[in-house]
């Protein structure tokens, strides 16, 4: 009972921490034309290729060669999407989804428990200080450089060419950054709340899931989306750790599609690109606010 009461109070105090830590600068009141111009210019650089992908995916192959590339098709067609969906893309989609879910859930839960322990021990445990330094070191090391031993390990575990082979290293690679960002947020939970949980006789386990986890939900969402993006778009691990076409994840399928017999059909290739982005676009639309503010707060302190 007290937990729900205090958690609401904490949400109120914790919320400004994430957003309006400091007031924005309002140097002068006159508008900054140069910055504005640059801002719109960069928008054009970002949006033109995206816009081109979308409109071209609705063009027929023959129209692609003769029409102005930046003018939308006068008779949009869904044929490219039909073609792509007939070509096993639903299977690749499912593979990507399974790998993403299989990676995000354990990596975020494990990282949260570790981040909680690191913050709560407040440097009192030598073991946890060591774990923390290890994860910080993990941030500075290009882990992709270790793919050959990962490949050997996966073969020895008889996991080669399976989705599990993609999940295990992805979880490991996701942990350092997840711990760093989550720990930054758990640190913002007022100490008094932990203290009152302790007075109520709650165990660490209960405090972890009953207090810290709900209070840092924005951070959990941020880290989950970020990890999902990394795995969804991952290329090197699927390339090295799988070989059968039916184990392909989407980025690998895209590359194979483009390099295969259908590769000359640019509108169809771009339709497949659109299909691979859609889930991430939905996830981004849903969690955008938390992702953007969470990333700046998680790194920027």
């Amino acid at each position: 009972m007290t937990a729900t009461h205090t958690s609401r109070a904490a949400q109120r105090t914790a919320a400004p921490g994430a957003h309006g830590r400091r007031r924005p600068k309002t140097t002068s009141q006159r508008p900054n034309w140069l910055a504005g111009l640059m801002g719109w210019l960069w928008l054009a650089v970002v949006i033109i290729p995206i816009y081109w992908i979308v409109i071209t995916s609705f063009k027929t192959q023959s129209n692609y060669y003769i029409t102005n590339p930046l003018v939308p098709p006068s008779d949009p067609t869904l044929d490219n999407y039909r073609l792509v969906l007939d070509l096993d893309f639903p299977l690749y989609f499912l593979n990507s989804l399974l790998v993403a879910i299989g990676t995000v859930i354990p990596s975020v839960l494990f990282a949260f428990m570790a981040a909680y322990a690191i913050v709560r021990s407040a440097g009192a445990s030598r073991f946890l200080r060591g774990v923390n330094s290890l994860f910080l070191m993990g941030l500075a090391i290009p882990l992709q450089a270790t793919v050959i031993p990962v490949y050997l390990l996966i073969i020895k575990l008889h996991l080669y060419d399976s989705l599990t082979a993609l999940i295990l290293p992805s979880v490991a690679f996701a942990i350092p950054l997840s711990v760093l960002v989550l720990a930054n947020f758990i640190r913002d939970v007022p100490k008094e709340l932990f203290e009152s949980m302790r007075m109520d006789g709650a165990t660490e386990w209960k405090t972890l899931w009953g207090l810290a986890f709900p209070l840092t939900r924005p951070a959990v969402v941020t880290v989950s989306i970020y990890n999902a993006l990394q795995v969804w778009n991952g290329f090197l691990l699927p390339l090295i750790l799988t070989q059968s076409p039916d184990k392909r994840t989407l980025p690998l399928a895209l590359a194979a599609f483009q390099g295969g017999p259908y590769g000359v059909n640019v509108p169809a290739v771009l339709a497949s690109v659109v299909l691979t982005i859609l889930p991430m676009l939905i996830l981004y639309t849903v969690g955008r606010r938390q992702l953007l503010s969470g990333l700046t707060a998680g790194f920027g302190k």
Binding site: Y116, L134, F135, L143, A172, I175, V179, W205
Partner: peptide, 17 residues
């Protein structure tokens, strides 16, 4: 209790990184 909470993350990181 706290060090045990860090164990799953540590093991996962140790095994594949």
């Amino acid at each position: 209790v706290l060090p045990w909470l860090a164990l799953p993350a540590l093991l996962a990181f140790a095994a594949f990184a």
